Amino acid sequence: MDLIKSLENLWLSSGFVVITWKQVIMIMIACLLIYLAIKKEFEPLLLLPIAFGMLVANLPLGGLDKVPIYEFKDGQLITKEIGGLFYYLYKGVELDIYPPLIFLGVGAMTDFGPLIANPSSILMGAGAQFGIFFTFICALLLGFDSRQAASISIIGGADGPTAIYLASQLAKELLGPIAVAAYSYMALVPLIQPPIMKALTTKEERTVRMDQLRHVKKVEKIIFPIVVTVLVTLFLPSIAPLISMLMLGNLFRESLVVDRLSDTAQNALINIITIFLGVTVGGTAKAELFLRADTIKIIILGVVAFSISTVGGVVIGKIMYKLSGGKVNPLIGSAGVSAVPMAARVSQVVGQEEDPGNFLLMHAMGPNVAGVIGTAIAAGILLTLFK
C-alpha cells in the first residue's frame, strides 16, 4: 500500500496533472519551430533557442521563471528562496543589456564598405522602413495605444534586438509576443520575402547585372562609424546604446589593431548572448500570456509590417532601376530590412534563380546595413515621441 501511495503522490506532483490545453498548444507550436530550425534550417541560431525556451516555459511546475523571495533578518536583506533560471537571465532583456551587446557583435561582423561605396543604398534602406510607420497606424486602428503601436510596428524592421529594446521601454506587457514575432520573422526571411520580390519585379529586372563596387579605403571605413555615432547620437540620444555599440564593434573590425576584441565580439560574446536572449525570449511565450487576442493581432501585424517593409525596399529599388537606366537590380531593395546578412543572401538567391552567374550579395549588403541603421533611427524617433 505504501508503494501505491508513493506512486500516487508522485503522479499527483507531476506536471501531467496540471498541464492545460493552452500549454499543449504552445508545446506543439514550439515543436513546429524546432522542426523548422533543424529540418528546414530557418536561421537555427535564432529559432532553435527561442523554440526550446518556448517549449520548457510551457511545461508546468518547472519553476524556471520563479521569482526569488527575500526577507529582512537582523537588518539585512537575505535571499530566502532563489529565483528560477529564466528569472535571472531575463534581467538582461529587462535592463536592456542584451540588445546593445548583440549590436556590438553585429557591428564587428558587418562590412559597411558596400554602403560607403554606394551611398544611394541608403534610399533602399530608408524605403524598407515604410512598413514600420504603416503598421504603427494599423496598430492604432486595432485598438492599441500609441506606445504599444510603436513597439509592435518596429517588427517591420526585422531587427530582434531593436524590437526588444523599444518594447522594454514602451510596452513591457507586450514584450514577449513582440520579441517572439520579431525573431520568428527574422528566421523566416527566406520564406516570406521571395514571393513578394518576384511579384513586384519582372524577369528583366531580376537579371540585371550590376557593376562592381569601388574599393573602399581603410580610412573611410574607420571614419564612418565615428561619424555615424556622433550624428545619430546627437540627433537621437535615446538610441545611443544601440548605435554606439554597433559602431564600436565595427571600429574593432576595421581598425585592425584589436583583433582579439573583434574576434570575441564576433564569436564568443555574440554566441553567448544569442543563447541567453533566444532562450529567454522563448521563455516569455507562456500560454496564459501568448494565447490571447492581442497576441494574434501582433503576429498578424508583424507579418504586415515585414511584408510592407519588403515592398517598400523593392519599390525604391525599381525607382532606382528606372532612374539609373537599368543599372540597379531592384531585388537588392528587399535587403533594406535589418536582418543582416539574411536579407542580403535572399536577394542573392532570388537573383541567381534567374541568372546563376549573377552575384548580388555585396550590392545587397549596402541596403542591408543601411537597414540596420535605419531601423535603429526609426526606433529612436518612436522612443523620443512616445516615451
Rank of each mutant, 00 (worst) to 15 (best):
I29D: 01
I275V: 15
F133C: 00
A150I: 02
M28A: 15
K40E: 08
F42R: 14
R260Q: 15
A370H: 03
I50C: 09
S14R: 09
T280N: 08
E354A: 15
V232F: 02
T233Q: 05
L85F: 15
E205M: 13
V372M: 10
D74V: 09
D111A: 13
I102E: 01
P100A: 08
V17R: 07
M124V: 00
N368D: 13
L246V: 11
L7C: 03
L242M: 12
I319A: 08
T264L: 13
P68I: 13
T229N: 14
V340Y: 06
L291N: 12
F42S: 07
Y185L: 11
K91W: 11
D145K: 13
G127E: 04
V258N: 14
V17Q: 06
S238Q: 15
V314D: 01
R292Q: 13
Q212A: 15
S151N: 01
L289E: 02
D259K: 15
G84M: 08
K203P: 07
G351K: 04
A364M: 10
S153W: 06
N267T: 15
L85E: 09
V93F: 05
G282F: 02
Q129G: 00
A285T: 05
P68G: 13
P195E: 12
I275N: 06
A285G: 05
G249M: 06
A293R: 12
A376R: 02
A182L: 02
E220C: 10
E288C: 09
F52E: 05
G176Y: 00
V56H: 07
S334M: 10
A128W: 03
A339V: 13
T274E: 05
T202V: 11
L10S: 14
H363F: 00
I69L: 08
L123I: 04
C31F: 10
S244D: 04
N329G: 04
L123F: 07
D65H: 11
S307G: 10
A139V: 08
G326P: 00
M1A: 09
R209C: 03
T201I: 01
A163F: 00
G92S: 14
E220H: 12
F52S: 08
F306G: 06
L7H: 02
H363V: 01
A150P: 02
I308T: 05
A126R: 01
F133L: 09
A265W: 05
I164W: 01
A57Q: 03
P330V: 07
L170P: 06
S307Y: 08
E173D: 12
V328D: 04
L261W: 12
A364C: 08
Y70N: 06
G107V: 07
M28K: 04
R209F: 00
L123V: 04
K39M: 10
A30P: 00
I381S: 01
L246W: 09
S6V: 08
P177T: 08
S244G: 05
I116T: 02
G336H: 04
V369P: 01
G357E: 14
G156K: 03
S13Y: 07
I223P: 00
I308V: 15
N267Q: 12
A199W: 05
G105R: 06
L140C: 08
I296F: 13
G317M: 04
A376S: 09
M54S: 02
L61M: 12
E94I: 10
M247T: 12
V219Q: 14
I132G: 01
I82F: 12
K387P: 00
A182D: 07
L246C: 09
A179S: 15
T202C: 10
T202S: 15
N271C: 10
A149P: 02
G92Q: 12
K286R: 14
M210R: 07
L213I: 07
L256Q: 14
